[in-house]
């Protein structure tokens, strides 16, 4: 009886999350594009064959992967520093904490355009400083080697506050007397960070990695607005590629294939990164 209360929410969640997945799997075995007049026609795995031979898909997978890996690791480091700072007692801490939170709360599209202006050549502040020092222009956003780093910065700036808060919550669960006991044993502050703080934060770090990795793999808004996937496709993520296939090339069948393909990659790399993290922790623990 009481289970009925769950039903409306469950049905809506299944409608919005479940049906798309089934629809994509079905569509990925059909041709449904301008050529077929968007009427799905079974094509016996041709989409999947195309995906496996599609250089752009693998190029985008690589780009998405390095974007996610670099963003998430930078975010973890910076967030840990912020959390350690916010965990100390000082005046004005609450105000600074609210300010720290701002980047997380602002719409991605708004700040993506803001970053575009900051990286603008020649009028953005970064190029201005480069100019003042007397160096050549950076052209950050029009150079395929640097544009993706600019998008990483935009992502790190926006999502670090979220991780910082989770890690801060984790820090507050560590009993203070652990540190006091450690100091009585003659441990230094720096040792305490590696022997108490980080091991105790492990579940929170894992949670952050899980949360952020999946989101970073699906990065869309930031890249769409900041670079549009350019220059020369160097910042194009899987989600952007799927979007282009659906909305610009009107190839729903192939777009669905890309999305299921991305989904599989996301699940595998999340599992793999958790495995790596655990292994890394174990090696560290052993070497001590």
């Amino acid at each position: 009886m009481i289970g009925l209360l769950i039903l409306p929410a469950a049905l809506l969640i299944i409608l919005i999350f479940g049906t798309p997945l089934i629809r994509y799997i079905w569509l990925s075995f059909h041709a449904s594009s301008v050529i077929t007049g968007l009427v799905p026609i079974a094509n016996k795995g041709a989409n999947w064959q195309r995906l496996i031979n599609d250089q752009r898909f693998w190029q985008d997978s690589f780009q998405t992967f390095r974007f996610a890996a670099l963003s998430v690791s930078l975010e973890l480091f910076i967030a840990l520093a912020i959390a350690l700072l916010l965990n100390q007692k000082w005046r004005g801490r609450n105000l600074v904490r609210a300010i720290t939170l701002l980047p997380w709360a602002l719409p991605t599209t708004v700040m993506a355009l803001g970053w575009r202006w900051i990286f603008n050549t020649p009028y953005g502040p970064i190029e201005l400083i480069v100019n003042l020092i007397g160096l050549d222009q950076f052209n950050i956003l029009s150079n395929p080697n640097t544009a993706w780093l600019a998008t990483v910065l935009g992502d790190v700036w926006k999502t670090t506050p979220f991780i910082a808060l989770i890690l801060l919550a984790g820090l507050q669960t560590i009993p203070q007397d652990l540190y006091e006991a450690f100091k009585l044993e003659g441990g230094s502050n720096k040792e305490a960070l590696f022997k108490i703080t980080i091991p105790m934060l492990k579940p929170y770090i894992l949670l952050s990695i899980l949360f952020r990795l999946a989101q970073a793999f699906g990065v869309f808004d930031l890249i769409q607005v900041m670079t549009g996937g350019g220059p020369a496709g160097s910042t194009e993520s899987l989600a952007i590629y799927a979007y282009l296939n659906a909305m610009r090339f009107l190839d729903f069948g192939y777009s669905s294939t890309i999305m299921i393909g991305s989904f599989i990659l996301i699940v595998f790399s999340s599992i793999f990164s958790i495995y790596l993290f655990n292994k890394f922790k174990n090696i560290q623990g052993y070497s001590r």
Partner: peptide
């Protein structure tokens, strides 16, 4: 698990709905 899912991948099916 669902909360972790990058929902951006849903846009095409939602558009169809």
């Amino acid at each position: 698990g669902i909360a972790l899912f990058p929902y951006v991948l849903l846009f095409l099916a939602l558009l169809e709905i």
